[in-house]
Nucleic acid binder design. Structure first.
Lengths: 238, 238
DNA sequence: TTTAAAATATGATATATGTCATGTTTTCTA
DNA sequence: TAGAAAACATGACATATATCATATTTTAAA
């Protein structure tokens, strides 16, 4: 597994964490300059191709990924064979934070949704900072609290809202959180199957409802690119 | 609101955190003796009657509750008027940890499921420890990571499993996590409506499926007390 | 104890969504 | 560029679950 990484995906980069703008967006901003310099020395920058599994359910991660570019999904295989997406991680986020806190293996699979550039920081190097730099650990704590809140919201939506509503909200969420391309299409490009796996429905149902939204002029599509035509309309879907 | 607490619910107790066995079960165990003595001096012990709302959605909590006895539910009101239960907090747990980390108001409501005894520790008193005692903050981090993992699992179950399966799993979960009374009935006593609100279904559906389980000899009931007759059977429900 | 209210129970029916089947379009690759 | 494979699309039908209606039982209150 690791050898594949070495062959195909890994590029050792000379770029320095201390100067990296990305860290602004996550907990790493709370590290001191000295800490960043040390981290910089042991990190591994890698390019990950679209579709690649970054880590799998049950795998021990032993570090954290700082996402410099691209987007990935965190999903979990359910017994019926479907892959439920529980979170989307984008440029600027840290991926695999949970592994710093627990020695358990990952409960989720991470898969690149487009080509990504990430820096892997070994757990051994960053654990000291988590222990000694309280500003940093408090930031990680905040992050996790935020994720937990979002997860609670998702539970409520899953339980109480229709597939139609959940799909509408997913479109709004992606629009609001990750923005749009110059042509107005959603910048996060997902397959119909991905949408189904976020919403928790059959792929056919997701396709069908997207078609309905199109007829109702709430969205327009070219290929798999989706453009929101009426944000307010989507928000009112019942 | 607070005056009601003072009149009906609050009892100032002389018991000391340093000697309290409950702390063994949560992050407070990582506080030093000195820290515990200080906490002990500013905590407020209260008795909370069954059905009382401990804190509501949108309320600012400003502290954390250590549950000495009893059980409560954390729920969130959805737009359709249903109250989705996202977590159950029992004796030994800390309630409202998220409030320590963020200044946002609570996204959840906490309601006592039976008579409870809790100690309220003001945020102002414990924040220092969260900043300075890294063992303590790491414990809180672990707790939150654990909750996050459980939340992810719930999302997958909500999305991919039938109501029947979810209800069976809820029974198993309550059995495994919170145990049974001497007569074998589940020690956490929930109304059919509570079950429906955990599973995310209509109350009638929850009742109906529990009746089916009864017919299938998976459980037995007297009044609202439920006894699991076949744990393996419940685990195999499809 | 009697009465009222809440919780539990069950039937009948409606409906959203899943499943299966089939066809079309887009994307990939040799 | 052709051919294969994957993704998208839509119809027909099955089914789990919601909703509404109405008993019955349990709990609370007067």
């Amino acid at each position: 597994m690791f050898s594949i990484f070495l062959l195909n995906l890994q590029i050792f980069s000379m770029s320095k964490c201390e100067q990296c703008i990305i860290k602004q967006f996550n907990s790493l901003k709370s590290l001191t300059k000295d800490e960043l310099i040390r981290i910089s020395g042991c990190k591994t920058t890698m390019i990950i191709k679209k579709g690649t599994v970054i880590f799998d359910e049950g795998e021990t991660i032993n570090g954290v990924y700082c996402v410099k570019d691209g987007i990935c999904k965190l999903s979990k295989l359910s017994e019926n064979g479907k892959d439920q997406i529980v979170r989307i991680v984008v440029k600027g986020d840290l991926l695999g934070q949970r592994s710093l806190v627990t020695d358990e293996s990952s409960n989720l699979q991470a898969t690149a949704l487009n080509d990504m550039e990430v820096c892997f920081i070994p757990k051994s190097e960053i654990m000291n900072d988590l222990q000694n730099n309280s500003k940093f650990s408090f930031d990680v704590l905040k992050d996790m609290a935020h994720d937990l809140k979002e997860a609670d919201d998702i539970i409520v939506n899953m339980a109480q809202k229709s597939v139609r509503q959940r799909l509408a909200e997913t479109l709004v969420y992606i629009n609001d959180s990750f923005g749009v391309n110059p042509d107005g299409t959603l910048s996060v490009l997902l397959s119909r199957e991905d949408f189904a796996n976020i919403v928790g429905t059959a792929t056919e149902s997701a396709i069908r409802i997207l078609s309905q939204f199109k007829k109702e002029k709430l969205i327009s599509t070219k290929g798999k690119h989706i453009k929101i035509e009426s944000l307010t309309g989507l928000k009112q879907v019942e």
